[in-house]
């Protein structure tokens, strides 16, 4: 029994060591690599980042990113390298330009619209209430009288 357990454990050790291990000169480079792998988008299997995807192009892009990180290139340089080849599409954080500005403006405009509607309605209500209430005490009196007189 003991021998089987040890055998099993040994097998598990092997599967762990079969995983890809990348060496980095320092922690900052490791950090940068993982950050970029999470932020770069696979052009083949869309809606996956290159860290998640095993498409050929994602494997190549990971490898290229690793090379460029090792060469000491900055985050911006590596992003630009990929964008030059695969377009803005390849980065999960879109740049601010004439087309993408609506991503930020649309929710803001909706919020402003909602606020405008709310204000408009509130002002209307405020304008209407005094008129409606002006006659109320008298009307109430009349109603009370009416119901009182109905009672035997």
């Amino acid at each position: 029994m003991k021998r089987y357990v040890i055998g099993l454990l040994w097998l598990m050790c092997n599967t762990v060591s079969a995983e890809e291990v990348l060496a980095f000169a320092n922690d900052a480079q490791r950090e940068l690599y993982y950050q970029l792998a999470a932020e770069l988008r696979c052009p083949q299997c869309q809606n996956q980042n290159i860290a998640d995807s095993n498409a050929i192009v994602a494997v190549d892009m990971r490898q290229k990113t690793y090379q460029l990180v090792q060469q000491g290139q900055s985050r911006q340089q590596i992003l630009q390298y990929m964008i030059n080849r695969y377009g803005d599409f390849v980065h999960y954080q879109p740049p601010l330009n004439r087309v993408t500005i609506w991503l930020w403006l649309a929710p803001l405009l909706l919020l402003l619209g909602l606020l405008a509607v709310g204000l408009y309605r509130r002002r209307n209500e405020a304008a209407q209430t005094p008129d409606n209430l002006a006659g109320t005490p008298d009307e109430l009196e009349q109603l009370i009288e009416k119901y009182r007189s109905k009672k035997p």
Binding site: P43, I56, D60, M61, Y86
Partner: peptide, 12 residues
């Protein structure tokens, strides 16, 4: 090594 393909922006 698919190096030219990468430079061309080939996705597959």
């Amino acid at each position: 090594q698919r190096s030219l393909s990468l430079d061309l922006g080939v996705s597959g």
